[in-house]
């Protein structure tokens, strides 16, 4: 079994910075945990899901699409492949979901320009908020950092993951990992049952419009729920004309905005706050379930944490189940 003690994590990750662009949760001077270079601060793998969505590494808030200058099309230079550590097992499910989304139909080259060749490392074990237990991922990543309360057990899955782990000598028996795996199997997630139940009620059209209107009363359209959601993929596009070039870029959009679906005629199929609020929840729990065969909320908890008025997806799902079951 391969382990890294917490005090050596920064050095460990810095060791890969020649080969990769390494992104890892670090602690800022303001005490926030953010995805950044290991040079930017001490690693902070523990603490649960980061506030920002980890998929932003591949799909940032604003991103260049194309730049056309007087000398023709300008391409962004290629960077080193990414090595991103810090996905919770739930984040991995989100990543799998949007990988499929961006690959199907028109493959999103901009997304895959970063995603292709990227190493993904999960974080689990006693690494949740306040030291809570996070069940192990089961391998949907290249490697996993599992905290047993004292050291980080490094578990490689893919060949690239094994090459990373190969830099760590075996230093302990596998008993600790086996115990953590066993503990993972016994974890029950109450929130999962809540959104599954809410999903069924939505699919069976048991939730009336007046409910959505009442939830929407508290929505100030901050758009935070969408912008922190790892499975939200909508974006808008803008063109800026500089004296020497035209730049097209794209930026995260939000279905909570009135302009999101407004047609040129002025008609808007999501023309009320209630309809837009319904759309946010219904899309994840019902529409995606119909289209992709699964709910596209994987309970990362970010929208519930970011919503200033407490109407994130789990909170709303709980209301639905309490009122309409």
């Amino acid at each position: 079994m391969k382990t890294v003690i917490p005090d050596r994590l920064q050095e460990f990750f810095i060791g890969f910075t020649d080969e990769f662009e390494v992104k890892v949760p670090v602690l800022t001077t303001e005490g926030e945990r953010v995805f950044a270079s290991p040079f930017d601060g001490p690693p902070a793998l523990s603490g649960g899901a980061l506030a920002a969505k980890p998929t932003a590494v591949f799909f940032p808030q604003q991103d260049g699409v194309i730049s056309i200058g007087s000398e023709g099309l300008l391409h962004a230079s290629s960077a080193k492949p990414l090595f991103v550590a810090g996905f919770t097992p739930r984040d991995l499910l989100c990543l799998r979901f949007i990988d499929r989304f961006f690959a199907e139909g028109y493959r999103d080259d901009i997304y895959f320009s970063r995603r292709k060749g990227a190493l993904i490392a999960a974080v689990s074990g006693f690494s949740g908020a306040s030291g809570g237990f996070v069940p192990l991922s089961g391998g949907a990543c290249d490697l996993e950092f599992v905290f047993d309360g004292a050291v980080w057990i490094v578990v490689p899955y893919s060949e690239p993951g094994k090459r990373i782990a190969a830099r760590i000598p075996d230093d302990a028996a596998d008993d600790a990992l086996a115990a953590l795996l066993e503990k993972s199997g016994g974890c029950v997630d109450e929130d999962a049952a809540i959104i599954q139940a809410a999903s069924k009620l939505l699919l069976n059209e048991m939730v009336p419009d007046r409910f959505w209107d009442s939830v929407a009363e508290s929505c100030i359209q901050c758009t935070g729920c969408n912008l922190v959601c790892p499975t939200c993929t909508c974006f808008g596009v803008q063109d800026w004309r500089y004296p020497d070039r035209v730049e097209r870029s794209r930026m995260w959009d939000s279905c909570q905005l009135e302009g999101f679906m407004r047609e040129a005629s002025g008609h808007n199929p999501l023309g009320t706050e209630g309809l837009r609020t319904r759309r946010r929840i219904h899309h994840k729990l019902a529409a995606d379930r119909t289209k992709w065969g699964e709910i596209s909320c994987f309970l990362c908890g970010r929208c519930d944490a970011a919503c200033p008025t407490g109407i994130g997806i789990v909170a709303v799902s709980r209301m639905i189940v309490e009122r309409f079951s």
Partner: peptide, 15 residues
């Protein structure tokens, strides 16, 4: 290229 809220800031509290 973007903005990230702060959970620790006493006014914004992550929003």
């Amino acid at each position: 290229v973007g903005v990230e809220p702060s959970r620790n800031h006493p006014v914004s509290r992550g929003g």
